[in-house]
């Protein structure tokens, strides 16, 4: 039980990553593939945050002068994830716009049916 307690964030993060990868490998609908990409990205972000966590740590913000700097979580992964979230939004929007263009061109979102058209 202590294993589960210690590693619950890692397990959750990689659970999300594998759910996303599985969706991307198995599903044929383009929108579902993009949803899988988004879930995968969420898992990666959660994993990076979990790596930077320090036991009983607070957010690295000195708004309250009573806060001591001994127990603060690592700010570097948080800054990294701040970057990754914004880029994730941009990638998601670009992928959705490509899906819209494909749908206008072929009339379907199923990747197998698009393949049959030999483009």
């Amino acid at each position: 039980m202590t294993f589960l307690h210690d590693y619950i964030y890692y397990i959750g993060a990689f659970g999300l990553i594998f759910i996303g990868l599985f969706i991307m490998l198995v599903k044929h609908n383009l929108i579902k593939v993009i949803i899988g990409l988004s879930i995968l990205e969420t898992g990666v972000n959660l994993f990076l945050i979990a790596v930077g966590y320090i036991s009983k740590g607070t957010a690295p913000i000195f708004s309250n002068s009573a806060v001591e700097s001994e127990r603060m979580v690592d700010p570097v992964p948080q800054a990294l994830v701040l970057t990754a979230i914004v880029i994730g939004v941009a990638v998601l929007a670009l992928a959705l716009s490509l899906a819209i263009r494909l749908y206008h061109h072929y009339g379907v979102l199923d990747l197998r049916k698009i393949k049959e058209q030999r483009w």
Binding site: D6, V51, G52, I54, S55, S69, M72, D74, P75, V76
Partner: peptide, 18 residues
């Protein structure tokens, strides 16, 4: 992941920034 324990400080640069 077995080699990366959860909840311990891992980078020195983070402590420097804080």
């Amino acid at each position: 992941l077995d080699k990366i324990p959860f909840g311990v400080p891992k980078t020195k640069i983070g402590d420097y920034y804080i």
